[in-house]
């Protein structure tokens, strides 16, 4: 895998601060391995997000790197017709509702979001 400028790393590889960052990282690798986009396409989607964030005054690329990563992943998924904004938005609301409908300490199932 290629290295990206600003990606939080140590001598052994990428470093994550929270589980969602690793999840977003893995999604990109998995989609790329399946041939849904080239690494070049991914690199340019990511660098566009980073450039835009820098232009709007992003103070700390180390902490916000995976936010850009996630934004680039959402963008490329839509460009490649893997998903669209409408279903992403409604699915996000469904997950939020699932958390709110699930008693604390129990596993969160997406179906719980459909209960009113």
């Amino acid at each position: 895998m290629e290295n990206f400028p600003y990606q939080p790393q140590d001598e052994e590889g990428p470093v994550f601060n929270e589980p969602w960052e690793a999840q977003a990282f893995a999604l990109v690798l998995a989609l790329h391995e399946k041939g849904l986009f080239s690494w070049q396409e991914w690199a340019s989607a990511l660098s566009e997000q980073i450039t835009a964030a820098q232009a709007s005054g992003d103070p700390d690329l180390g902490n916000t790197y995976y936010q850009h990563w996630l934004a680039a992943l959402e963008t490329i998924s839509q460009q490649k017709n893997l998903s669209n904004e409408e279903e992403l938005t409604s699915r996000k609301s469904l997950w939020r509702a699932a958390y709110l409908n699930t008693p604390h300490g129990q596993p969160i199932e997406l179906s719980a979001g459909e209960v009113s």
Partner: peptide, 17 residues
């Protein structure tokens, strides 16, 4: 209930699912 996670985490869950 369970407090929903951050917006970032929800976005990842939405896309992944």
């Amino acid at each position: 209930h369970t407090e929903p996670p951050s917006d970032l985490e929800l976005r990842v869950k939405a896309l992944e699912s």
